[in-house]
Design a protein around this nucleic acid. Structure first.
Length: 354
DNA sequence: CCCGGAAGGA
DNA sequence: TCCTTCCGGG
C-alpha cells in the first residue's frame, strides 16, 4: 500500500557523504538502502537527524566524543522513524532493538551507563591522504553505478588507513595540494592514470604500480545525509588553509555562473558526486576544517560537468535502484547547478518534524 | 532502560 | 537483508 510518508518529505532526501581526505569504515559507504530491502536504513536516518539543527532537541551529537550521540527524545525519534517507514506503531523499544542489531555489525555500540546514548563506530576513521585533483569518480560503469561500489573509496593506502587521525597528514595533503594548484586550477581532472593500474577493494585497497603516494577516498554517492556541508568552526588548522584558496581553491561566489552547467551529460545515477560533508561536531579532525574551505573545496572539485559520468550499461536510472525520484530533486534538464547554491541545498531538505 | 532470541514480513 | 514485533530476563 502506498504510503504518503515520502510525499511528506521526512528525511527522504538522500544526501551524499563527502569529506575530503577522510576514509570511513566500510559500513559508512553502504548505500542508503540495501539491494534487497530498498529501504532506508536506520543508521542513515539517525545520521540524517543528527545533521539537522531542527532535530537538535531530539537527537544530538555528544560533544567531546566523536561519533557518540544522545537520543534526547526517544519517543520523538521513534515517531519520526515510524513515520519515515510508515510504521505508526513504532516506538523506542522497537527502534532500539533495531539499533542493537547494529552492534554485531560494528556500526554502532552502546555507551554503557548513559541512557539513550549510542556511538557510531568511527574508530576506523582515518585520513586518506588524497590530493583532490586526483579525486575523481572511477570511470568504469560498474564502479559508477553500483550503489555500493560507488561508495568505495579509491586507492586508500593501507598504511594510511591504519594511522590515527592526525593533522600532519593534512599538512602533507595541503602541501601536495598547493603544488598541484600551482600546476592547474580548472583543468580537467586526470582520470587516465588512476583507472588503469589500480584495484579497488574498499578500504583495503591494493595500490597499483602507478600509485605515487596519493590516494582518493570518500564518495558515498547515495547517502542519506543533508547536502549542505557544515563543518564545525573550530580551532585553526595546523596548515594554513588560506594558502589553499589561491589556485587550489579559487574564489567562487554563488553568483558566479557555473561553466558548462547548461550541458549536463548523462547524469550520475543516484549516487551523485555532489559532496555533502558529514557534520560530526565531535570529530576533532573535521573540526579543523573551516566551513568556507569546505565549501570552496566542494565547488572547486565538483563542477557540474564533473558530475557527469558515463551512463550505466543499462541506463540504470531506475527510480528504485540508485536514483530515485526523491533523490535530491534531480531532474533531467535541471542540470546540477542547484547543488552549488546552498540555498537550493537547504531547500531540498523539506523536513517536517510535525 | 537495556539486552538478545525468535519469528516473520517485505 | 534489515528491520518489526514480541517477549523474557537482567
Amino acid at each position: 500500500m502506498h504510503c504518503n510518508c515520502f510525499l511528506e518529505g521526512i528525511l527522504t532526501t538522500p544526501v551524499n557523504y563527502w569529506i575530503s581526505g577522510l576514509a570511513f569504515p566500510n559500513w559508512a559507504y553502504k548505500a542508503e538502502s540495501s539491494p534487497g530491502s530498498r529501504q532506508i536504513q536506520l543508521w542513515h536516518f539517525i545520521l540524517a537527524l543528527l545533521q539537522k539543527d531542527e532535530f537538535r532537541h531530539v537527537i544530538a551529537w555528544q560533544q567531546g566524543e566523536y561519533g557518540e550521540f544522545v537520543i534526547k527524545d526517544p519517543d520523538e525519534v521513534a515517531r519520526l522513524w515510524g513515520r519515515r517507514k510508515c510504521k505508526p506503531q513504532m516506538n523506542y523499544d522497537k527502534l532500539s532493538r533495531a539499533l542493537r542489531y547494529y552492534y554485531n555489525k560494528k556500526i554502532l555500540h552502546k555507551t554503557k551507563g548513559k541512557r539513550f546514548t549510542y556511538k557510531f563506530n568511527f574508530s576506523k576513521l582515518s585520513v586518506a591522504n588524497c590530493p583532490p585533483w586526483k579525486v575523481w569518480a572511477p570511470s568504469t560503469p560498474h564502479l559508477l553505478l553500483g550503489s555500493t561500489a560507488l561508495c568505495q573509496p579509491a586507492l586508500v593506502p593501507v598504511a594510511v588507513q591504519s594511522e590515527p587521525l592526525h593533522s600532519t597528514l593534512y599538512t602533507h595533503w595541503a602541501t601536495e595540494t598547493q603544488l598541484a594548484g600551482e600546476r592547474t586550477s580548472w583543468e580537467p581532472l586526470e582520470t587516465s592514470g588512476e583507472k588503469g593500474n589500480s584495484s579497488f577493494d574498499g578500504f583495503g585497497s591494493a595500490l597499483g604500480p602507478g600509485w605515487q603516494g596519493s590516494c582518493c577516498c570518500f564518495l558515498n554517492l547515495q547517502g542519506d545525509l543533508p547536502s549542505v556541508a557544515s563543518f564545525t568552526p573550530a580551532p585553526r588548522l595546523r596548515c594554513n588553509w588560506t594558502h589553499l584558496s589561491g589556485p587550489i581553491l579559487p574564489p567562487f561566489s554563488s553568483e558566479q555562473p557555473l561553466s558548462g552547467s547548461s550541458k549536463p551529460g548523462p547524469r550520475l545515477p543516484g549516487p551523485l558526486c555532489m559532496p555533502g560533508a558529514w557534520h560530526f561536531p565531535g570529530l576533532p579532525l573535521l573540526a579543523r576544517l573551516r566551513q568556507g574551505t569546505s565549501e570552496r573545496l566542494q565547488r572547486r572539485f565538483l563542477r557540474p560537468e564533473e558530475l557527469v559520468v558515463n551512463p550505466g550499461p543499462k541506463g540504470h536510472l531506475d527510480s528504485n535502484e540508485g536514483l530515485s525520484s526523491e533523490i535530491l530533486g534531480l531532474r533531467p534538464g535541471k542540470g546540477t547547478s542547484m547543488f552549488h547554491n546552498p540555498e537550493n541545498l537547504r531547500a531540498m531538505w523539506p523536513l517536517d518534524p510535525s
